[in-house]
């Protein structure tokens, strides 16, 4: 039963990681590409880490939750690196696409 739960988490993680990176290829400008990795990929990796925590907790018969540490770390650092990247992009005046409102 728990194995099915782990499988669901693993597949959800894989799908979100995939969609996050798909944004890198699909989106037309830098600022729109930034959305994929900061949100979808972070949740995808978080989901796989939760799957890992559940899996090793049932396998080794003892609660293993140190994967939470990487999840928390990623959730704290992802917005920081996104902020710095967009700041750098604004600094060197990376172009946004024409239809963006309030262009800077």
């Amino acid at each position: 039963m728990l194995e099915i739960l782990v499988s669901i988490f693993i597949v959800i993680g894989g799908i979100f990681t995939f969609i996050g990176s798909l944004a890198l290829v699909k989106m037309p400008d830098f600022y729109m590409r930034l959305h994929g990795p900061t949100k979808a990929t972070t949740l995808g990796v978080g989901s796989i880490l939760i799957a890992s925590a559940i899996y090793f907790s049932i396998k080794d018969s003892g609660i293993t939750i140190h994967e939470i540490l990487i999840t928390i770390f990623l959730f704290i650092t992802a917005p920081v690196s996104a902020h710095l990247l967009s700041k750098a992009a604004l600094h060197i005046k990376t172009k946004e696409i024409e239809r963006t409102k309030n262009r800077h």
């Binding site: 990681t17 990176s21 830098f30 972070t42 990487i70 750098a88």
Partner: peptide, 18 residues
């Protein structure tokens, strides 16, 4: 652009963790 490449590296390492 340069930020694009850094973003790609950033995504690359997060994917590697997964």
């Amino acid at each position: 652009s340069m930020p694009d490449r850094i973003l790609a590296l950033d995504t690359l390492y997060i994917n590697t963790i997964a």
